[in-house]
Simulated assay, not measured.
Amino acid sequence: MDPWLVVGLGNPGPKYAGNRHNVGAMVVERMAADAGVTLRAHKARAAAAEIRLGTMPGGMPGPKAVIAVPSSYMNESGGPVSALMKFFKIPPERLVILHDELDVDFGAVRLKLGGGEGGHNGLRSISKSIGTKDYLRVRLGIGRPPGRMDVADFVLKDFNASERKELDFLVPAGGDAVEALVHRGLTDAQNIVHAH
């Protein structure tokens, strides 16, 4: 079976590490920690590791996956994603992108295939670089900015104290959603994940 490529979006460096925009990267970092692997620098301008996604019924290791976080800025995510796909020979239908989503309530996780980018520069860059919008997305809800706060300011701010407590649930839920997607397919995974 072809491996999957699971990419968590974010901006590089400690300044951005706690930002709402980086929740995708947080999920992949947690997946690496849970699998006991280290994300290592890859020539595709990303930090990547190979893992098995969960366990199959009967205890067999789950499917192979490359998990990665681009080391470029968010609006240049397409280059690293495209390079990883070429390097590991991964087709678009086995690409899963984890990203922050303003149109999903904070703490909720939604799955979808393709569609628009909703003004998300990381998704726009990926769609352009790989030549299709038809890839799987794990949309990690960050909610809408309060009042008249600018969207760009909102996504580049750290989660607030009460949100950080919820992140302990949202981040693992993102990893669970990836496993559900890979093990059960999109429709079944949506039924499970969207029920929460």
Rank of each mutant, 00 (worst) to 15 (best):
P61C: 06
P61R: 15
G79H: 14
K64I: 02
A65T: 12
V69E: 00
S72K: 00
G78A: 04
S71L: 07
I67N: 02
A68I: 02
E76V: 12
M74V: 12
V81E: 11
G62R: 12
Y73L: 03
P70V: 11
S71D: 05
E76W: 01
S82V: 04
M85G: 09
A68C: 05
G79A: 15
L84R: 04
V66F: 05
A65D: 12
M56E: 15
M60P: 00
M85H: 08
M85V: 09
I51F: 08
R52Q: 11
I67V: 09
G78V: 05
Y73N: 03
S82T: 05
K64N: 06
P61D: 10
G54C: 08
P80S: 01
S82M: 13
V81R: 13
V69C: 09
I51Q: 02
G62E: 10
M56H: 11
I51R: 00
G78R: 07
S82H: 15
G78E: 07
V69Q: 00
T55S: 14
N75F: 01
A49T: 01
M60A: 15
P57Q: 06
I67G: 04
V66L: 04
T55F: 15
M60R: 15
A68Q: 05
V69F: 06
G54N: 10
R52F: 05
A49M: 05
A49Y: 04
E76G: 00
M56V: 05
E50R: 15
I67P: 00
Y73C: 06
M56K: 15
